[in-house]
Amino acid sequence: MLRFLAWRLLFLIPVLLGASAVVFTLIQLAPGDPIDVLMGVFASPEAREALRAKYGLNDPAYVQYFRWLWHILQGDWGVSIQQRRPVLPLVMEKFWITMLLTGAAGLFAIVVGVGAGVIAAVKQNSLTDRLILLVSVFSLSMPAYWLGLVFIFLFSVTLGWLPTGGMRSFMGEKSNLDVLEHMIMPGVVAGLTPAAIIARVARAAMLEGMRLDYMTALRAKGLSERAVILRHALRNALPTIVNMTGLQIGYLILGAALFVEIIFSWPGLGYEIYKSVIGRDMPMMLGLVLFSTIVFVLLNLLVDVLYRVINPRVRAD
């Protein structure tokens, strides 16, 4: 197990190098520069040059990249050009806010996804199965930002049940569950796509397991249908489900969060990524991507470890 962990952590290095190089190149290719965005059209050419020099933006791109890399290796994440504050604390602060949303969305995705998948498998080809298929295909194909707006219109504007966005309310009585109330809609919207994917995977894995002969043997032994499904079929489908869930949660942090956070004004990593792309804030952008990549890879590692724990066949080798 230790060797496995060490090997995987070593593998993290080329992944991080690759991700940061891609982001760096993409931002370099995009027209526009951070100093123009920061100073507007009125600043004199000399003032622009001076500020560019201060951030080392006049050096060739590869020099800038390797300088950034050299600093990162020493633990220096740089300073945001737009906010003039060290990148790492800014990213950390936003990370926890995003994790809150990701946690809610992940919980929703796991509970609903696994639940729906199991039910669909047990009631294979029934109306319920078809309905679950319909809903999951719908959730998969609807973009999160569109779904977000529909949810806002339905649950906030028309029904008045939930707040439209943000993390806290400023008017009227504040309940103790204020943040939780604000979390429900973005959590559900962000969690729908992963829930749909998990449901599809769970259904397939369950069906595969339920076809095997030992299921009949268990039933013949007199086990209740409930025990057969939950204790044996689901237990055997778990490795596949866990694997997919890990990937989906990682996707949530970087992917879904971006759109969902902007629609719901959730002040996490997504909002920061948006702002730093718009402002061409390279140190911030690189910091955000590097950090998210680390989290993504570590999360996958955790999943792989979990996979080995729950799947004895893999544990053996």
């Binding site: 806002i152 219109f153 906030s156 008045g160 943000g166 008017m171």
Partner: peptide
């Protein structure tokens, strides 16, 4: 006085209609 920046125009109107902003 509280300023709540809402980038998305449709979300801004939704917040007004939902009674969250004046």
């Amino acid at each position: 006085m509280v300023y709540r920046p809402i980038i998305e125009p449709a979300a801004r109107v939704a917040a007004l209609k939902a009674g969250e902003v004046h």
